[in-house]
Design a protein around this nucleic acid. Structure first.
Lengths: 188, 188
DNA sequence: AGGCTTTCTTGATCCAAATCAAGAAACTAA
DNA sequence: TTAGTTTCTTGATTTGGATCAAGAAAGCCT
């Protein structure tokens, strides 16, 4: 199946591992704005994004605050909820229509048990999440809004192309008005 | 050894596991203000805090920004750096004099390999880190400074007793002056 | 296409927290 | 103990980004 080729490429799996994955993972489409996980639910699965983009966000008082964006060839989920099987603190929803490869909790456990290389894979994914969250925290703590904007523009210009600006503003923890002014200031 | 009793209690290990831990882990004292890990270094170990308190912080422009505090009976380390064996983004230092039980990277790997229950333990620690960081992000993203202050006061009053206020201010991502005014306002 | 809603931009005003400044209190080390 | 730091408090001022407001542009129906 064409759709697993990206997994093969992203994770550099052997034919045997890829077969095991094909036999357990499920393919799913989710449409723009659909939820993958809601705050309070216990996460039953994580997903590999074949195509599309998603966001992970918190419910704040009246608004939503966006914590992160995920594009094709990355793994998305609430790892806290998924691993501990506790209610999720975060929401996850599609920004663009997405093609996903879904990994159920029990399947992941079984795959890890059976294939030490898949275990290693899972460890790498977990590591990446730790690094991602340390980076995110560092950016929120040590940079001011304008610096965060310039940083994001430099490191992930595609976010400005594919993500609605109100979500980008939320990610930067500023209002849409302020983002708009930064964009004018730096002519983006 | 008395010092391992807390580990036994915190993790509810069997006698056999505790023995395995005793034979590999090393006890260390570190003094107030000493570093456990510096930004840029690759983390070689994680530590169980028997006694004392530590902080995890980032270097920002001219100042340090504190990301979290850790007290006795918790595990501290840069998990991103420890697991991926990449340079740490964070610093870790003692606030009070500490008694630590140190777990070297290779020993942890070996223990996990050998004892499935210790593997389970490590999974729980990792889960806790994920939850901790989701909570931390949520607090930075959805609360304003004064709400963060009130929240911290409610949930962790002991932090105000044991941690120098400038570190608390940094944790709340406000200036010491602002913290001082909040304290006056709420008579803390 | 055309009407409707949502998103984005631009301007005016406001405010919470930062900065600047200086004194008080708490540690530290001889 | 006391001199010397460092930390904390309090006051005056500034400021970056929020909020309020209203129009422009872009999406999204049928």
């Amino acid at each position: 199946m064409r759709i697993f080729l990206n997994i093969q490429k992203a994770f550099n799996t052997t034919a045997e591992e890829l077969d095991a994955i094909k036999n357990t993972a499920k393919i799913a489409s989710i449409r723009k704005n659909d939820f993958f996980l809601r705050e309070g639910e216990i996460s039953t699965s994580v997903a590999f994004i074949e195509q599309g983009s998603m966001r992970l966000f918190y419910n704040a008082k009246e608004k939503e605050v966006c914590n992160d964006f995920f594009f094709e060839n990355s793994v998305i989920g609430s790892f806290g909820s998924f691993m501990a099987q506790t209610p999720s603190l975060v929401n996850i929803a599609a920004i663009e229509n997405c093609e996903l490869v879904i990994f159920k909790h029990e399947d992941v456990m079984a795959l890890i048990e059976q294939y030490t290389t898949i275990k290693r894979l899972s460890d790498i994914i977990i590591q990446e999440q730790f690094l991602r969250s340390e980076k995110r925290e560092a950016s929120l703590l040590r940079l001011n809004p304008e610096e965060r904007f310039k940083n994001l523009l430099e490191e992930h210009p595609k976010i400005f192309k594919r993500i609605p600006l109100r979500h980008v503003a939320s990610y930067l923890n500023i209002t849409p008005e302020t983002l708009s002014r930064y964009r004018a200031k730096f002519s983006v």
